[in-house]
């Protein structure tokens, strides 16, 4: 059974038809890449999943429940979390406070302590720097805080919006290692990326979007070898 499922989703901004009959799913514990160039509808897909925009037709199902008409906070509480594009940390707040905000919906003190321990085990660096202001960290370090913050809500599904954006090549690699690490801990992931090569190399499956429509889907290995995809997105 799939954890997340978009069924025939049509999303509009005003009269502009952005997502056109989009159907995709992410299984439990699966790592799925969503690829596409600029303005292909990747970010709108994430917003639709989170409930920041509502589809005009179609359904968003999460963990077997139709959440199409549910508020963002409801979906977060059900187990979706996101590492936003450009990380969007709360810059003048400490690393610890940022993590706390990630666990905003978790009011249970004991559960929260466990969440802190889990995140600190995954990223010992965050424990070291917990009292430092998030805005004073470097890009790669901020990426870790953003991942930690998202994991604080104990998500079943983690959405990653352009994790490679704004990072030096060496940090991109490190960032993808972290993604794999989190994935191996049992969290399903939907990674939205322009860097198709990198994203497919760690994914189980992939989808390719172009101007709001799915143009390709399949196992990641197969997509990596696909002639059309190479031409269109890998530039070789």
């Amino acid at each position: 059974m799939s954890l997340l499922r978009l069924a025939g989703v049509n999303t509009y901004y005003g009269e502009i038809h952005i997502l056109q009959n989009l159907t995709l799913d992410v299984g439990e514990g699966e790592l799925v890449s969503l690829l596409g160039g600029n303005a292909s509808g990747k970010s709108t897909t994430l917003k639709t999943i989170l409930g920041l925009v509502r589809p005009r037709t179609g359904a968003v199902e999460f963990a077997g429940e139709d959440v199409t008409q549910r508020a963002t906070s409801y979906r977060i509480a059900r187990g979706i979390a996101i590492v936003p594009e450009n990380r969007r940390l709360f810059a003048p707040m400490t690393v610890l406070e940022n993590l706390e905000m990630g666990a905003y919906l978790n009011r249970d003190g004991k559960g929260r302590k466990e969440d802190f321990e889990r995140v600190y085990t995954l990223f010992p660096f965050l424990h070291e720097r917990r009292h430092q202001l998030a805005g004073t960290l470097s890009g790669g370090e901020q990426q870790m805080v953003a991942m930690g913050r998202a994991l604080m809500s104990h998500p079943k599904l983690l959405l990653m919006d352009e994790p490679s954006m704004g990072l030096a090549p060496i940090l991109v690699e490190r960032s993808f290692e972290i993604i794999q690490q989190v994935h191996q801990a049992g969290v399903a992931m939907l990674v939205v990326e322009q860097n198709a090569n990198m994203a497919l190399s760690i994914a189980d499956r992939g989808y390719v979007l172009a101007t709001g429509r799915l143009v390709l889907e399949g196992p990641a290995k197969q997509l990596l070898e696909d002639e059309g995809l190479r031409k269109a997105y890998l530039g070789r």
Binding site: L52, T72, A77, I82, P84, A91, M101, S153
Partner: peptide
């Protein structure tokens, strides 16, 4: 918790919203 949530709201309303606030 509410005070910190207000501050995050001030810093970045969208990020605050996707934290489930």
């Amino acid at each position: 918790r509410t005070g910190r949530a207000w501050r995050s709201l001030r810093e970045d309303p969208l990020a605050a919203e996707v934290m489930g606030m």
